[in-house]
Simulated assay, not measured.
Amino acid sequence: MKTVVIAGASGFIGAHFRQQFAAAGWQVRTVGRNGSIADAAWGDTAAITALLDNADLLLNLAGKSVSCRYTPANKAEIVRSRVETTAELGRAMAACANPPRDWFNASTGTIYRDARDRPQDEYDGERGSGFSVEVARGWEETLAAADTPSTRRIPLRISIVMGPGGGVMRPFNNLARLGLGGRMGDGGQIFSWIHVQDLFRAVVFLHEHREITGPVNIASPVVVTNAELMRAVRSANRAPFGVPTPAWLLKMGAVLIRTETELVLKSRWVASRKLRDAGFIWKHPELSGALASIAGDRHE
């Protein structure tokens, strides 16, 4: 039986991964804030080392949600919750007698620039600028600095994750049901996304394909514009119309709901070239099918 250690397993993605790994016959161990719930707590490096010793895979998903206002306190916590947890995992891995063969650490597709002209892949994608990019850079640099010579380390540059029960779908669905599911801004920004089932399948695929190294983008091969996204969301929710939201109104609304407009106004065009070239097959390559699957799961 293989063993996976999931750090940051209490969120939407982590909960799905725990269930899917267990269903696939893996032994699942967790690292989290609460030692009475997780198998080891942050700050107890010795306990984390004991979990990691003889495990097959470490998957780190820890990090405060970026769906918040970028106040100084929130920005500091966004950075700390990623960099410090990754650094602690590195110390625990270095202390293992038999560390995991693979360490996959969450990163983000928003590390690339705002792009409408061409997709950004792992080979010639261009780094962007701003707070979110600096967070991603620090996250990946901390992983690279870990003293784990016998472990393959891969930053997972994950695009927007969609799935039943969480992710971005809840606010989008709510907007559509209220008649507010129109395009956001000019609607031309590219929306790269991944169904949570394909995210899990990509992680297992990477574990099985040892020849893949370096950062890996994880995104569906079929991107859409924001206008196309919101049209598909309206269709999935049987909403006959959606009022468009101009950028200036989004900026006002973001203050009220305590989030940032970058989450919907930045054009993220992320291409998963390494997965594609290695032969990965997406179960949900197109948005309409993914949304139909999510809606079906929601109503079961």
Rank of each mutant, 00 (worst) to 15 (best):
T3P: 01
V4W: 00
V5D: 02
I6Y: 03
I6S: 00
G8L: 00
G11Q: 05
Q20E: 08
A22K: 12
W26P: 05
V28I: 13
R29L: 15
T30R: 08
N34E: 13
S36K: 14
A41V: 05
D44Y: 07
T45V: 14
I48L: 09
A50W: 00
L52A: 07
N54F: 14
N54E: 15
N54V: 05
D56T: 04
L57R: 02
L58M: 11
N60G: 03
A62S: 15
R69A: 15
R69V: 06
N74T: 12
S81M: 05
V83M: 05
A87N: 07
A87K: 03
L89T: 03
C96V: 03
D102H: 11
D102E: 13
W103N: 02
F104I: 10
F104S: 01
G109K: 01
D114G: 07
A115H: 04
P119T: 11
Y123I: 10
G125V: 02
E126S: 10
F131G: 05
V133R: 00
G138L: 14
W139S: 00
W139F: 07
A144M: 10
D147I: 12
P149R: 12
G167H: 03
V168T: 08
M169N: 14
P171S: 10
F172Q: 00
F172S: 02
L175E: 00
R177Y: 06
G179Y: 08
D186M: 09
D186T: 09
G188I: 04
I190K: 02
I194T: 01
H195K: 09
L199G: 01
R201I: 06
R201Y: 06
E208I: 08
E208Y: 09
P221Y: 07
V222D: 13
V223N: 05
V224Y: 07
T225N: 09
N226R: 04
E228T: 07
M230Y: 03
R231T: 11
A232V: 07
S235T: 15
S235D: 11
S235C: 10
N237L: 06
R238V: 10
P240W: 13
G242D: 03
P244L: 08
T245M: 15
P246I: 12
A247P: 08
A247N: 11
A247R: 12
K251I: 02
K251M: 07
T259S: 14
E260Y: 06
T261D: 12
E262Q: 15
R268P: 02
W269I: 03
A271T: 06
R273D: 04
R276V: 10
I281C: 09
W282T: 02
W282M: 08
K283V: 10
A290G: 11
S293L: 08
A295N: 06
G296E: 13
